[in-house]
Write a protein that binds this DNA or RNA. Structure first.
Length: 486
DNA sequence: ATGTGC
């Protein structure tokens, strides 16, 4: 990761908040706010992500602040872990502010099994999972689609998958947006994207995407854990995946067209990667329609993958793990833009919230929180790294007051892929994980080291910041026992 | 993240 040597000024607000003053760059329309403690802020200073927070603050129509969560790191235009809200009338949408993996997200599946029951069969379960979940770069998915079927997926998302027999209608009630963003327009999606998408539904991909079997290791909040159906020593499964090559192609197509139109729109941005489209322009509307197609593909994708997980558990545990007894706890997306309403300076304002590596965290009582969780808040799923911990939180009222209903999304990368590979070999990492009692199955062994725990910040430190800042509340900690990767 | 470069 490069360091320009330019020091972005930071003013401490309190133990968990830092301000980048608007005076730093004349083009900034709002200040920046960074959520971090003393240790994390030093790690964040190591790359260019603070400069990117300042750059995002120059976007036309940006409202309030350019925000950064404690897991931020350098990304395309926006930092990963960045949040920006733009006015729907005067503002823009920046495709790079959603990211290449449209609706990359996380779902958590409960089981009725305890660690004691799974322990002796972990290797067999790992084999079954690896077999049921197609993975790898460019890999084909569980289901090939005709173009007509892909169109249904683009418009209907996870509901299409449920109708096809992958999972249950109840799954949709605990999926963000019900597993379908409205306003999808397949005509705004290129034929190249469609060609890439038809073979990829129900596939894990590679990189930081994974399926992990985990144990509920520590309970921070008994009442909230009970409401989410989670208890100590329970075995659960996390799926982290997105829209594969399909969403990637949509992002690439619109980033390219946005870059070519900046002059026409009269924009002179400080970074060409921030290329953006007025929300009221035809191109802006086309991007949002295409982005919704990518998002819906990702929800259908995670729905198929979850079906594969339920099948794998059933194969190993029989009647002890019937699919209907493995309820979906929740599904969040952490790379997306949404039109939402917030009270800003006393007035209700409709804004386009860009969440790039950032998770929605609506508090108790919010109408978008499923009824069964309404009293505790929206579940927030935070995968850590494969060797340490992941976390479940619930949204807290502070998110509505401070961060456009948003919190962090993960541990956050601390070392580049190249630096990680230099620091440890895949073989040594595999041995380390096995020694910790974690069964690992990986499609491309060479890529494993890029995702080593040492490549990531400490997720526990990240979630402590958002907990203490009042954006979300800690509920449980999860410890990995099986890792399946692309 | 990614048919891992254009």
């Amino acid at each position: 990761m490069s360091d320009t040597g330019v020091k972005v000024p930071l003013q401490r607000i309190d133990a968990y908040r830092w301000r980048i003053p608007q005076s730093y760059q004349p083009e900034m329309r709002v200040p920046g706010i960074v959520y971090a403690d003393d240790v994390l802020i030093e790690q964040i200073r190591q790359d260019n992500s603070l400069q990117q927070v300042a750059n995002v603050a120059t976007l036309p129509g940006i409202v309030g602040y350019s925000l950064a969560m404690p897991d931020i790191h350098w990304g395309y235009g926006f930092p990963v872990g960045g949040v920006a809200a733009t006015d729907v009338e005067t503002g823009v949408v920046s495709p790079g502010g959603i990211g290449f993996d449209i609706n990359c997200g996380v779902r958590l599946l409960a089981t009725g099994l305890s660690y004691q029951e799974v322990k002796g069969k972990a290797d067999r379960l790992a084999d079954e999972l690896f077999q049921h979940l197609p993975s790898g770069v460019g890999g084909k998915g569980m289901r090939s689609l005709s173009e007509r079927e892909l169109r249904e997926v683009m418009v209907r998302g996870a509901a299409w998958a449920v109708e096809q027999g992958y999972g249950f209608p109840e799954d949709l009630e605990v999926t963000e947006e019900g597993g379908c963003l409205t306003g999808a327009s397949p005509e705004a999606v290129s034929t190249t994207a469609i060609q890439r998408g038809v073979n990829q539904l129900g596939s894990l991909g590679a990189g930081n995407h994974f399926c992990e079997v985990q144990v509920v290791d520590y309970i921070y909040d008994e009442e909230a854990a009970r409401a989410l159906g989670l208890y100590k020593d329970q075995v659960v499964t996390t799926i982290h995946c997105g829209s594969r090559g399909f969403g990637h192609q949509i992002a690439e197509d619109y980033i390219r067209v946005a870059e070519s139109k900046q002059k026409d729109f009269g924009f002179k941005l400080v970074d060409r990667q921030l290329a953006c489209l007025p929300l009221r322009s035809d191109l802006g509307k086309s991007y949002l329609g295409a982005m919704a197609c990518g998002a819906n593909f990702a929800w259908a994708n995670r729905q198929l993958l979850m079906h594969g997980v339920r099948q794998a558990f059933s194969r190993v545990f029989g009647r002890q793990a019937r699919p209907a007894e493995m309820p979906l706890v929740y599904d969040v997306c952490h790379n997306i833009a949404k039109i939402e309403e917030y009270r800003i300076n006393g007035e209700l304002q409709r804004v386009c919230v860009h969440r790039k590596g950032a998770t929605r965290a609506f508090p108790a009582g919010h109408p978008a929180v499923p009824e069964k969780y309404r009293a505790v808040g929206q579940p927030v799923l935070i995968p850590g790294d494969m060797g340490r911990y992941s976390f479940v939180l619930v949204g807290a009222p502070g998110s509505m007051e401070q961060s456009f209903g948003t919190t962090c999304h993960g541990a956050g990368r601390q070392r580049s892929r190249t630096a990680a590979k230099k620091a440890i070999s895949s073989k040594d990492l595999m041995a380390q994980l096995e020694a910790k009692g974690i069964a690992v199955r990986v499609h491309s062994k060479g890529l494993l080291a890029e995702e080593a725990p040492l490549a990531y910040k400490d997720a526990e430190q990240v979630v402590r910041v958002v907990h203490n800042a009042g954006l979300a509340r800690l509920v449980v900690r999860l410890r990995p026992i099986i890792v399946v990767k692309g």
